[in-house]
């Protein structure tokens, strides 16, 4: 398959206008990119954990999906999707349906890293033929920017506010992609929205068309929660990748591969300084914060490179 943006954009969009995500929201961009990776002739059931995405894309009676869609709760999207996929197998076996369906589940980092982790782990272990897509915006944005286990250290979130005795979140970000890879599922990848969208498209296509449970972790910046200008999505994603804060890689049948290595690895401060949630790190006397953030990213990056062949 050779990727051609023009051809992909000629396909009918499966994510519809009129949804009520914020202006500049990274989640909407991620969702339309992932759904664009479906082959035109295939049907899909899109499923969703309670999240910004859910409350903005299916407000009764307005669904923003061309395909079937289901939401039931916050912490159960993976198990629910497993139920849909199981029904598909049974009904196909019984001759009640004849079309090809793909199952794509979206959750935010709250619904994926945290409250839905058990449900996701169970569904991955059981081997349902589905793709779980985490759109990671690094906090509980739907309830107002509370910290999650995906929130990076030092971030100013509303439950880890910066104060005279606090420098923001204490803990580092949970490495969920590695946790899901440890389930031994056939395909796991980390991606975000870059350039001509080749990276996210190819990974989404591979995840959708690999049999068995697959997982995509998509960094999906949130202008309100991260406090950057709403027109800056592309640059924020680019900096996350070029500073190695969000490395791009995939794990195919247990083999780790880097899919992108920045020619020049930029200092992490280039990424941090664009965002209000890290503003306190740049105050005089707080240089140690940037140093420690850099050190953490460097260690993770070296470990990842060592893991990748």
């Amino acid at each position: 398959m050779t990727y051609k943006l023009k051809e992909e954009l000629n396909k009918k969009e499966r994510f519809a206008q009129g949804h009520r995500l914020c202006a500049g929201c990274g989640a909407g961009v991620a969702v339309s990119a992932v759904l664009r990776a479906l082959d035109e002739e295939d049907k899909a059931v899109v499923s969703n954990a309670t999240s910004c995405l859910e409350v903005s894309t299916f407000i009764y009676p307005d669904t923003a999906y061309e395909d079937s869609y289901i939401h039931s709760a916050f912490e159960n999207a993976a198990a629910m999707t497993g139920g849909v996929e199981t029904a598909y197998r049974v009904l196909k076996k019984r001759g009640k349906i004849d079309e090809n369906f793909k199952f794509i589940c979206f959750g935010g980092d709250g619904g994926t890293y945290d409250i839905g982790l058990q449900s996701l782990s169970g569904a991955m272990e059981r081997g349902h033929d589905m793709v779980y897509v985490c759109y990671d915006n690094e906090a509980y944005m739907n309830t107002g920017i509370q910290r999650s286990s995906a929130t990076p250290r030092f971030a100013d979130a509303t439950t880890t506010p910066v104060g005279t005795k606090s420098y923001g979140k204490i803990q580092n970000k949970k490495d969920l992609t590695a946790i899901i890879a440890a389930h031994g599922v056939p395909y796991v990848a980390q991606t975000t929205m870059l350039g001509n969208f080749r990276d996210i498209h190819e990974k989404a296509h591979r995840a959708i068309y690999t049999e068995g449970p697959c997982f995509l972790n998509v960094l999906a910046p949130c202008p309100r929660g991260w406090r950057y200008g709403m027109d800056d999505l592309a640059e924020i994603c680019r900096l996350a990748v070029d500073t190695c804060v969000w490395p791009l890689y995939e794990v195919v049948n247990g083999k780790w591969h880097l899919t992108y290595e920045p020619r020049t690895k930029l200092p992490v401060s280039d990424f941090l300084e664009k965002q209000g949630r890290f503003a306190h790190m740049f105050r005089p006397g707080n240089e140690w914060m940037i140093d420690e953030a850099q050190q953490y990213v460097d260690e993770k990056w070296e470990n990842l490179k060592a893991r990748c062949e």
């Binding site: 009129g18 995500l21 202006a23 500049g24 909407g28 961009v29 339309s32 027109d231 999505l233």
Partner: peptide, 26 residues
């Protein structure tokens, strides 16, 4: 593909005028 509101229509490989019915102006 960067438009969060799917508001840049493409026809036969060319983008058209932004669909202002939905563009939120980000």
């Amino acid at each position: 593909p960067f438009c969060p509101d799917v508001s840049i229509p493409v026809e036969r490989g060319e983008r058209l005028e932004t669909n202002l019915d939905y563009c939120k102006g980000c």
